[in-house]
Computed example of a mutant assay.
Amino acid sequence: MNRPHHPPASLPEPSVKLAQGWHCLHIYYRVDQAALRQLSESDLAEGRESIVHLLDPERPGAPQRLQTSVVSGHKADLSLMIMDTDPLLIDGVRQAIRASKLGCALQPTYSFVSITEVSEYVPTLEQYGDKLRRDEGMSLEDPAYTAKLNAYGQRLPMMNRQRLCPDFPNWPVTCFYPMNKIRHPAANWYMEPFSSRSAMMSEHATSGIKFAGRVSQLITASTGLDDWEWGVTLWGRNPEYIKEIVYTMRFDTASARYAEFGPFYLSYIKPPVDALDHLQI
């Protein structure tokens, strides 16, 4: 007689929801002008109304984060960034666009699936204390050491929450690109010891901090989920800051020696109705 298999009590229940953090989808559409011309005036109006409602981040049942932007250049016309605990709610937006009256005219050209994470290179409180003693020569009895450690301890939960469940800045421009860490015989990131990788990522983070207030960055993880290992989303107060931060950080060893980049998508954030107006839909 076959007995039912029961997993160990310590294992979590099967679920599509993450233990912590959110699922994330970047998806890009191109307007098919020929298909758009085939729509009747009433179908066009109905499709436009449904898309505006669907992409409203404040509507009942909307994903936790939903941002619309128009893409600069020929790679795409419309960009969506969607985040939620439930990946099927995210995919529901994509499916509703496909099924709408405008679905035939909005052709997906690129997508990127990822999840939020707290990087292994973000120091714990204990690791930060070790770094202060090792790199800055501070002692446990030093009041400055205690002050720095306490300040970091107060910031860390907020910083990790922003990494896992991010708020989007109210800035006009965003840029997305996927990336890998290289696995090459002459430069294999995954053959470096953790201490070396951590030091390189600390240098990389120090470069990025200089752009605080001008650029906000979110790294999402995609290893095993998409063709690249990470997705980088940048928001900028101005497009020139996007260019400056990417250029500056390419001189860091973690980037100059070990990084491989995919396509870059620059877009300008607009409410759904303004985005469709801009696309002349």
Rank of each mutant, 00 (worst) to 15 (best):
T68L: 08
D43V: 01
P263I: 15
Q127E: 15
V31D: 05
P108Q: 01
T68V: 03
A151W: 08
A45N: 12
M83C: 09
P169A: 04
V173K: 06
R98T: 14
G236I: 10
K148A: 03
Q64F: 14
Y152Q: 01
T206G: 10
T174Q: 06
W189I: 07
V93D: 05
I245Y: 13
Q64S: 12
Y190S: 01
L218Q: 02
A96G: 05
L279E: 00
Y268N: 09
E141H: 13
A275T: 01
D142K: 08
T124N: 08
D91F: 07
S255F: 13
Y121Q: 07
I27D: 01
R257K: 13
A256N: 08
R65G: 02
R133T: 15
D32Y: 05
F261Y: 08
C175W: 11
L55M: 03
R163Y: 02
M179V: 14
A221N: 08
S15Y: 05
W228G: 03
I51Y: 00
H6Y: 08
M201N: 00
I115R: 03
A76C: 08
D86P: 05
Q107G: 04
A256M: 07
E117Q: 09
M83Y: 06
A45T: 11
S222A: 00
R237G: 13
L276G: 00
T68Q: 01
L225M: 12
C104V: 11
S196A: 11
A105D: 11
P108E: 02
F264G: 05
K101T: 04
P4Y: 02
L102I: 02
G231D: 04
T124Y: 03
V31L: 13
A34L: 09
P14R: 05
P185G: 00
Y268I: 08
W189K: 07
V16R: 04
H26R: 15
E141K: 14
Q127C: 06
A221F: 11
Q217W: 11
N180S: 01
A254S: 11
V52C: 11
L11Y: 09
A105Y: 12
W22M: 12
V122S: 04
G21N: 01
A35H: 04
M83W: 00
Y121R: 07
Q67T: 10
A19Q: 12
S198R: 12
R257W: 10
F264E: 09
P239V: 03
A34Q: 15
L106V: 08
V93H: 02
L234R: 12
Y28P: 03
L55E: 01
V93E: 03
L78C: 06
D84W: 08
A186T: 06
Q107M: 14
P185A: 01
D130S: 09
E41F: 15
E141G: 05
P185S: 02
P108C: 04
W189A: 09
C104A: 15
S119T: 09
Q154Y: 12
P108F: 12
N150H: 09
Y268P: 09
P63V: 10
A187R: 13
S202N: 13
Y258W: 11
L89G: 10
N188S: 07
D252T: 13
L125I: 08
W189G: 03
L266A: 08
D135Q: 14
E244C: 02
E46G: 06
L149A: 06
K17T: 13
V113P: 00
G208V: 04
I82Y: 01
